[in-house]
Amino acid sequence: MPVMNIKDFSFTYPGVDHPSLKNINMKIRKNKITALIGPSGCGKSTLLRSMNRIHDLYPGNKYDGIIELLKADTQKMENILDIKKENEFIQLRQRVGMIFQKPTPFPMSIFDNVAYGLKIAGIKDKSELEGRVEKALKDGALWKEVQDRLNKSAMGLSGGQQQRLCIARAVAVKPEVILFDEPTSALDPISTGAIEELLVELKKDVSIAIVTHNMQQASRISDYTAFMYLGDLIEFDKTENIFLNPKEKQTEDYITGRFG
């Protein structure tokens, strides 16, 4: 079942004549990991950043088409490109979380980092906060490492720990979808392994879309894969089909390393 449905979606950056994404059609399925792959500049990050409309921090972007998000209580799809009001943006971003390429710990303690999203969502009760922070840190596979220094600055953690902290912070607000924008490209192989395991673990609770430039990573963890090239979605299918049995010539060339 899809939680997000992207239909005939095109995207144009301000001051540019040609759209950076053209007629994209794909789905993000519930409790699955969907990987977006393709060479640099293919638009995979642009697409990801459309899915929580983080693009809108900078004015002048043009969206065409539809991106639907499943509303949990009514089981109906809503078009997130219709959103105009600030409070709707806030709700959208609480439902669709995001993890960036570089870890982004906020300049505050470990505890406050994880509690931040909960606090701005209006949770004030101290014991509830503590419970949910602990839960989130456990979900982020970080609890054991940080439980006795929750009040220390998050800046003191290693890169891999910081990234897991950011994941815990995103998980804490219980989003329906989390978008990962090359989350391991700034990390060493061991930290990368830990995060990959974590992602597979997390899909029990959330649906995941991940941009990666690492094909092995996509093949290791994802259930579905979309191959993009120069702003077009070339092929979207189950991961094993993409990697073992691509229908398109371009996909095959990319997978086998002939370009990219």
Partner: peptide
């Protein structure tokens, strides 16, 4: 850094 701000916005901060 922009990405730090973005990640706060991405959590629904005003």
């Amino acid at each position: 850094p922009d990405v730090l701000k973005e990640s706060a916005y991405a959590m629904g901060a005003t």
